[in-house]
Design a binder for these strands. Structure first.
Lengths: 155, 155
DNA sequence: CTAAGTTGTAACTAATATTGTTATAACTAA
DNA sequence: TTAGTTATAACAATATTAGTTACAACTTAG
């Protein structure tokens, strides 16, 4: 006669990470702060050395800041200058400069719900309004801080 | 004698799209609303039909809502029930249930800046505080709406 | 007890975003 | 003319999302 007991214990840990807002934003803030603090010789290489990344990453972000009218970058000679006063540049300005999204929508809503269902028929419009407000609350907080204020907190 | 004129016009359009917050969130809101409105026969297939997606997508999200203590899902028999009253479930509860991130940080900040630079030395701490506030403003807005309020806006 | 329907979940794919990298053309001033 | 720089294309590695198929485990009706 044989007797047998099998016990299997399986522990599975699933780590999911939400895609967060790109470091482009924080790098852009870093870059603008550096241009403000060290107006001379702010080349892509110099900034990359402070941010600790590749110069091309900086130049890509500089291109966005340039397109947003925040900086002037001089090809050839190098270096960048701010086109607006520090107390006229808010974190929201920078956020918008580097987060090029269609419609600037932070939240996505699933598409084509079933309109034969009372929930499917209404969810998009009702939820859209709520999420717009939530995004707006975040952005208004960003708009409340200027680079001037930010830099004044450096030690 | 040859005369030659070359004109090249190159127009490049670069469309960048920021990764937005996953549709998991809106699908989860949809799902919970549906369970509230149609408490009977709310199986994964039924919900998927209303959301217009694959049932596995729904079951994955249901698993997260279950883990967050918002719903009870019965294996085998099927169907889900809400574990909290509609006026006690906020959009923030749902958001947190499906956006499993380390530290729940919406914003990322670039790592290892150069500490020999006054900007690199300070940027992380100073910016972190600002972004935390901005994220908090968004979340508090989400916390201000319950599923009860949301559903009452359906026509 | 069996059959039908369901949940739970693994595994895979396609599409897309991010970040870093190399390479090269074009530009500017000494 | 030369050295240093910006602008940008191209590519790789990595990661997330959303959809899909497949299958084991579960529950209840009959």
């Amino acid at each position: 006669m044989t007797s047998r007991l099998d016990i299997t214990i399986l522990v599975t840990t699933v780590v999911m990470t939400l895609k967060q807002i790109s470091t482009r934003f924080s790098i852009a803030v870093h870059t603008l702060s550096l241009i403000a603090v060290s107006p001379n010789d702010c080349t892509g290489d110099f900034i990359a050395g402070s941010v600790n990344t590749n110069p091309v990453v900086i130049r890509r972000i500089m291109g966005m800041l340039k397109k947003a009218g925040l900086v002037d970058v001089r090809p050839g000679v190098g270096g960048a200058t701010l086109l607006k006063d520090l107390d006229r540049i808010t974190l929201l300005d920078v956020y918008r400069a580097v987060n090029v999204t269609e419609e600037n929508q932070l939240f996505r809503i699933h598409e084509n719900p079933n309109i034969n269902c009372p929930v499917g028929r209404n969810i998009e419009q009702v939820l859209q309004a709520e999420l717009k407000d939530a995004q707006s609350a975040m952005e208004q907080r960003l708009a409340g801080t200027t680079l001037d204020q930010l830099i004044s907190k450096f030690e």
